[in-house]
């Protein structure tokens, strides 16, 4: 039926150079995102230590951690897309024959790429305003906001790229649309519900 698969389910790239480069970029994004989450764990623990054990002020930690987790989410988007980790409901694709399913796949992913690309575009715009006007966060730390905002165009931009690569992989026959076997309703015992 559907869902995130719990096993490692990354897209196949074959020897297609475009797919391989995109896959490498997305994987790098995954490492960065994981690193940011781990950094957030350590900074939060450090904050509790500073406040509870040393009884000192905590000035920058809360904000740093929030921005790290947001950036990890946005930068992590292309990686999770590559792992087919964004949960979906494929009721309609399952009901379709292979041909129409492939058409639906291209339509669905093109719409996805369009919206992600749009977010990257307006996100870049937003980032630029924050950069040019020198916006800061309204705290004692006063972090320059263009730094966290940079994750918006980068994350959505690379997410768009990965989606385009996913379309390409299906059109080139490296992958099946929606990762479904030809006749999913009669499949059994393969993890393909």
């Amino acid at each position: 039926m559907t869902g995130t698969r719990m096993n490692d389910n990354k897209a196949l790239t074959g020897s297609d150079p475009f797919l391989r480069v995109t896959a490498a970029i997305s994987t790098l994004c995954g490492w960065i995102a994981a690193g940011m989450v781990v950094a957030a764990v350590f900074i939060t623990c450090q904050m509790i230590f500073v406040r509870f054990v040393l009884n000192h002020s905590t000035i920058w930690q809360t904000e740093a951690v929030v921005y790290l987790v947001i950036a990890a989410t946005l930068i992590g988007l292309p990686y999770v897309q590559r792992l087919k980790g964004h949960v979906n409901v494929d009721l309609i694709p399952i009901a379709l024959q292979f041909g129409p399913r492939k058409v639906l796949y291209v339509v669905v992913l093109s719409a996805s790429a369009l919206v992600m690309g749009m977010l990257a575009f307006y996100g870049y715009d937003f980032w630029q305003v924050a950069y040019q006007r020198g916006w800061k966060s309204d705290t004692v730390w006063g972090v320059r906001l263009w730094i966290p905002y940079l994750a918006i165009p980068v994350g959505f931009g690379l997410m768009t790229l990965q989606i385009v690569a996913d379309i390409w992989a299906v059109l080139k026959g490296h992958e099946r649309p929606f990762g479904l076997v030809r006749d999913p309703l009669n499949a059994s015992g393969t993890g393909e519900l």
Binding site: R51, N55, S57, T58, T139, V140
Partner: peptide, 22 residues
């Protein structure tokens, strides 16, 4: 250990020797 409303107040209270938790 204090919570203050607004960064100017955080700066002042820190100056008075309080620890600030936002």
């Amino acid at each position: 250990q204090m919570r203050a409303a607004g960064k100017a107040f955080e700066q002042m209270l820190a100056g008075a020797g309080a620890s600030i938790a936002s």
